[in-house]
Design a protein around this nucleic acid. Sequence first.
RNA 1: CGGGAUGUAGCGCAGUUCGGUUAGCGCGCACGGUUCGGGUCCGUGAGGCCGCCGGUUCAAAUCCGGCCAUCCCGACCA
Length: 477
Amino acid sequence: MAEKITPRNQDYSRWYTDLILQAQLADYSPVRGCMVLRPYGFALWENLKNALDRRFKATGHENAYFPLFIPMSFIQKEAQHVEGFSPELAVVTHGGGKELEEPLVVRPTSETIIGEMYSQWIQSYRDLPVLINQWGNVVRWELRTRPFLRTMEFLWQEGHTAHATHEEAEAETRQMLEVYADCAINEAAIPVIPGRKSESEKFAGADTSYSIEAMMGDRRALQSATSHSLGQNFAKAFDIKYLDRNNELQYCWTTSWGLSWRMVGAIIMVHGDDQGLVLPPRLAPIQVVAVPIYKTDEERGGVMGAIEKVEAALGESVRLKVDDRDEYSPGWKFNEWELRGVPLRIEVGPRDVAKEQVVLARRNRPGREGKTFVPLSGLASAVTDALTVIQNEMLQTAIEFRDANTYHPTDYESFKEAVSKGFALTWWCGEIACEDKVKEETKATTRCIPFDQPGGTGECIVCSGVAEEVAIFARAY
RNA sequence: CGGGAUGUAGCGCAGUUCGGUUAGCGCGCACGGUUCGGGUCCGUGAGGCCGCCGGUUCAAAUCCGGCCAUCCCGACCA
């Protein structure tokens, strides 16, 4: 753990992997492109998962589980879908020592097998809507991988719903994007921009795709979650039909929406600094770490007594860890817990015991600035207040960073400069040709067409044609 | 799949040019002591198919051939 973290301005991507490995979120595995999620990383993912799951339940969804294996023929039923996913499928051709009659695909996503089941479960308008979510893993044969951001196997959730009308499906799609945005902003302290994907960027098989887009610490964009309005594409491919009130057979309208452990990567890159992780209090596996400081046995007794009072005062209200390891010095522990991103540290030394106080040190304000003295008597509320303050400050800092690096270019030259150093929010005519030109010349792509639009029309930044909407262009992960 | 690089202790590396006793160093690990309000210091010790297979040689981490793996840069991507 004594290794140094590569500074961000020296090599951002090494900084990123240094943090993941040294903070023990994850490790590389013997399998190329697959990572091991270590307990600390899993705890972070679990907290995110619980925060999302609460919201899913609150909006009427239930969890279920569908098979890992999907018959090859299922994938081929929806034309766009097969075209989009074929290059990255893992396929099982043998089982039990025999060649399979039909190869099985390891799911890259589950629209097809869930669609197949929905076609059996749905008969009547009375069966609708069907609102199911699945927590699981999927596999996509990626050529270049990075921990959390792009791994061959990843953990995620995928919601799949079926509705009687287009309007209802569209409302569901938008609602779930809102859920993601709310979770990103209020749990992960990541400001995200919700919007619509361009035609070229949308999900294989969707009518319309929506996403939330976030700016990372290197000013590149990360698509943090997506929600798709699938129209009747999958309903027609899988024969998902119902009888309406007039006894007429109708195809369902379906949706799907997903968020993966990629969000953990976003948390790292949005909040982390050169000392290590900075985790938002609401999701941090350890919210508060208490570090005792002493020299003699006598001091130890007094300090540990005070630590017990800290534990009693905080009770179950926060996720507290007491670092009573004897083999490390306090300074060593400070550095380690800062590396691991614990939002709030409590220091208790002999001087504090004498004054019946403790030191609170806030992770998001390094050094002396983030340290305050708090009397033991009012500790519980001081700690919960501090956690709230940290959560809010982290979001505020991230908003300011994003806004400071978002440009509104009005000519192509300044546009090119803008996407080389941040987000460009500007008029776009909607033509793929313009997107392609931008991509070729700058490596930037349209991230989304934000819901928040200025109105009116403008000149497309690329071709100067009439544009009715503004889009975010950026280099993306 | 194209271009570049690297495989030596758990991790990071030196040694390979020009073959030669017992393969080193730092960190980490174990033990003892010392220290403890911002990564203490000292001592002792454990730990190695030198990526794999083959060849040359009295002798290979070192030379030759093949293979494998990983990383970086490009084309595709939650």
